[in-house]
Computed example of a mutant assay.
Amino acid sequence: MELQDIRWNDQAREKILLDADRALQEAVREAASTLSGSDKDQVYKFLFEKLKDQFVDFQPGPDLTKYAEAVAGGELGSAASA
């Protein structure tokens, strides 16, 4: 067996991704409910701080900017503040 052959099975991979999506959704929901009217840089910083310690080797990409812009622009549906 080679080291590159060691990996999570498909069920575990799916669970990891679902957990990561939920963490992102919760952070965006919280940002939308607490940072209404803030600029995208403030929202981005909030999201970054909220998520960075939840993941190993966290490297935010364009997704974090996209959601920061959506929060700052009031583009999230009413379910985000529920």
Rank of each mutant, 00 (worst) to 15 (best):
D57W: 11
F48G: 09
E30M: 02
K40Q: 10
L3H: 04
G74L: 03
A20V: 04
K40V: 00
K66E: 10
L51S: 13
L51W: 14
F46T: 07
F48H: 15
S33Y: 00
A23F: 08
I16L: 07
N9M: 02
A68D: 08
Q11A: 12
D21A: 02
L17R: 03
S38N: 02
G74S: 10
D41Y: 14
L24E: 03
Q25H: 01
R29N: 12
A82M: 06
L47E: 06
E26W: 02
G61E: 12
D19R: 10
D63W: 07
D63I: 10
P62T: 09
R7K: 11
P62H: 06
V43T: 04
Q25G: 03
S38F: 06
Y44K: 14
I6Y: 11
A70L: 06
E75G: 15
K52H: 15
Q11C: 02
Q54Y: 09
D10W: 03
G61D: 14
K40P: 01
P62N: 13
V71M: 02
S78H: 02
K50A: 15
V71Y: 05
L51M: 13
D63R: 09
F58G: 06
P62V: 02
F58T: 11
F48A: 12
K66V: 02
L47W: 11
Q11P: 04
G77K: 08
